[in-house]
Nucleic acid binder design. Structure first.
Lengths: 238, 238
DNA sequence: AAGTGGTCTAGACCACGAC
DNA sequence: TCGTGGTCTAGACCACTTC
């Protein structure tokens, strides 16, 4: 008589523990507020080392599912802090990712003293020299995104010499000043004349706008306003 | 003579390693594309166990700074995939967090057969019963967010019995059906009459809208459109 | 003061994937 | 094939916090 072969029983890894704990939480076996068993106890239950349990619980904590405190133990979060994560691709990558042809065009490029509002925005000293660029990104020949950017020359002096007629400031900056900190603000605005013209929409049409300020360890690098074409949607799953 | 006390020299932890490696990358000592030293080598350099280096490098990988492959080693990412993370709080918490007084009002509440477009949106079978709610959230007495929600009764039948006149469907659902999957879409739209009236803005004004579809393991739970008051901004740092 | 999570170690085995 | 990262272990010490 033939013995049915079974796949070898896999050892419980941290992922298994993470899934199992999460399931118990989701099934309300451990409702919000519950004090979970300690790491030692869980390790005993799952028959593994404490370090393995620790990793699983750490990740659940990172994911905002549970809250951990020394001595206090781990508790199921009362108000799960849902967080959405968006990837911020290069415009070019975004356009090409949709299967469209990307085109870029420089509209304006001038270096001068920073206007007052920008000094405020970037905490610049008076008379700082900044480069002002305006450009537009196309998808299949149609305007996709209008970009209005200011670059701080005291941090990125090389910008003055670079030819932005073929490479967009976005792309150049990423290669030149990688790993910056940034703040983004998304909002809905009404298209004013200049933007409306560039994006080929009517004045007053609703526009999805992203404003981003970027620093290289406390030094302001650039401020950019991105105006998206009509119908643009920013999507995320979580 | 008094001896200056120094803090005891701390051992190098995974955070130190992470910071150090990141600094070398940022200083272009290890430019994008560089093949980094292996974990064993780094462990030797930092005088610690491989596991410690491993944790540091894992996090750098999670952060999108480096790319790791078995046998291939770790490389500095060419195109750093920047990602922004937003927290999605309860409206109430959001309003109160701004120091404003929160108020909620139910405008509409009716249960019926799902309209065709919703059947599509949620992959519902025909004749599914859904509850349609409209409500508005105030901050200091001013309209803050208008909510238009549909709840799938076959997943959350209890919704039909619940009194939404004081507790918003948002809050009730989170307590009732926690840890769901969701997809959000943000866009800028033009206020049509009904929304404009509710938010006390002019018809045609630009509105920041979030649409969210929620599932409880493949079962569609709810679809909601959130319309934010004029001037609303969604902010994130990264 | 004591219990819980945070972190490190030294060693081990495994699995992927470049060669 | 075989080097690299992925993961686990058993034990240890430490630091934070609540009691």
């Amino acid at each position: 008589m033939k013995v049915i072969e079974r796949p070898v029983l896999k050892k419980t890894g941290y992922k298994d523990i993470k899934r199992e704990v999460f399931n118990r939480i989701r099934k309300n076996e451990w409702p919000p507020g519950t004090l979970l068993p300690g790491e030692v106890e869980l390790a005993a239950e799952f028959g593994c080392a404490r370090a393995t349990v620790n990793r699983a619980m750490q990740e659940l904590s990172d994911d905002g599912i549970i809250d951990r405190k020394r001595k206090g133990g781990s508790r199921v979060n009362l108000a799960p802090v849902r967080q959405v994560t968006f990837e911020i691709p290069l415009v070019r990558a975004e356009v090409e990712g949709k299967g469209a042809t990307y085109k870029y065009e420089l509209l304006y490029n001038k270096t001068d003293i920073a206007p007052i509002w920008l000094q405020d925005q970037l905490s610049l000293s008076a008379y700082s020299r900044v480069q002002h660029l305006r450009c537009i990104h196309f998808a299949d020949g149609k305007p996709y995104q209008y970009e209005d950017r200011w670059i701080n020359h005291s941090v990125v002096p090389l910008a003055s010499e670079f030819d932005f007629s073929t490479i967009s400031p976005n792309e150049w900056l990423i290669s030149e000043v990688p790993y910056t900190n940034a703040e983004v603000r998304f909002s809905a605005i009404s298209a004013e004349k200049y933007v409306a013209t560039a994006l080929e929409v009517n004045v007053g049409d609703p526009i999805f706008r992203a404003e981003r300020t970027t620093w290289l360890s406390d030094e302001p690098v650039t401020f950019v306003s991105l105006y998206f074409a009509k119908g643009y949607e920013m999507v995320a799953k979580y």
